[in-house]
Write a protein that binds this DNA or RNA. Structure first.
Lengths: 196, 196
DNA sequence: CCCTATGGACCGACCGGTCGGTCCGCAAGT
DNA sequence: ACTTGCGGACCGACCGGTCGGTCCATAGGG
């Protein structure tokens, strides 16, 4: 409501955490560093977050939720396999590039996700993974895609590039996210193209 | 020579470190955990290693060196681009699968590589990367490969899957490393195939 | 006045690393 | 063949400092 002249403490903490976790890793970042960069005292931090771990969950939960919602919307269109795959790649690449730091933190720290609360993030990613695999498998069965490799291998390849994108993508770089997405989709669809 | 009934302490420490770093991350693993699993006391550890960081360097240095040497040998054969690319993929996949934990540790902790000593690991990976990129670029110029995507994008894709292989590869799984390598090479070469 | 938001002193546990010392295989001295 | 001395492998108590987390005082809007 009140348009705060500076962001509220909670938001500042979240932003500082994303930046520091991306740069130094979760275990390599102390709560003291986070609150110092956010301009908040210890008490203020623990007023908003129950623990350092809770902070980590919040950092990567948001991106995954958005990507999953976008996936559902794209699949719901019911387009041809090739078109659907292209749209999925485009959204994944662009949302990952737009939130590269969150994506990097999730990717690097996902092995810390062990408890009940975070298992759902794993399941979310798993669902995304399975959806793409099924899309490719169905496309191959229907003859829209060539059976040049197993659906699993193709899926691992697609997610492999995208998951590592935060490591090499630079917002100031030559290539815009849309162009990266196009190139990747071209590459994948060329491999899956059925011989004329 | 003397087939030690138990490995020497140094080797046990190294093995324990790889395992724990892969499971919990470098910062998430204490020296106390490493020495406990290795069955060595604190003093014994610091007799063999100057610091915890030095231990990390040793854990991932060896694999990179071997992969780079294999790459040089393959390139030196001077085979056709397609054949060379297939051989590089095969070696990368198989060596990564065989040393999945080291590969995982390197990939997850590479952002910690900042000092002089470790910069060489970065350069080694960079050289591997550039070699593949040039191979694809030359192949495209010569007409052996289709210009379906930029050489950089193709390279990122290949290394993307392979770097994430430790996350999903299971030695007891259905697919042998050689089969994974074949599938991946088939996929990549299908995309790069020039239309007949 | 109470309730939410915040500050900062403070806590015990644990961190990476040090240090003085023990143990033992082995080669030289006799 | 027995003794002596030495050097490297290894031990575990201990260090200062930092960790994540707690607690209470306080400020200020309703």
């Amino acid at each position: 409501m009140t348009a705060a002249v500076t962001q509220d403490a909670r938001t500042r903490v979240l932003r500082a955490a994303v930046e520091l976790f991306a740069k130094q890793g979760y275990d390599g970042t102390s709560v003291a560093q986070v609150i110092s960069q956010a301009g908040v005292a210890k008490g203020g931090f623990y007023h908003h977050f129950t623990s350092k771990e809770a902070l980590l969950y919040e950092v990567y939960g948001d991106l995954i939720t958005r990507q999953l919602a976008a996936m559902d919307a794209i699949v719901a269109r019911g387009s041809a396999p090739g078109e659907t795959l292209r749209a999925l790649i485009a959204d994944l690449v662009e949302s990952t590039a737009a939130s590269a730091q969150q994506a990097l933190v999730f990717w690097r720290e996902q092995h810390k996700l062990g408890d009940e609360r975070t298992e759902q993030y794993r399941r979310a990613r798993r669902r995304y993974h399975d959806t793409v695999t099924n899309l490719i498998r169905d496309g191959q069965s229907a003859g829209s895609f060539a059976a040049v490799a197993s659906p699993e291998m193709v899926t691992f390849t697609i997610f492999g590039v995208i998951n590592e994108l935060p490591l090499w993508y630079r917002p100031q770089g030559r290539k815009r996210p849309a162009q990266i997405a196009t190139e990747l989709a071209d590459f994948v669809l060329a491999a899956l193209a059925v011989p004329a």
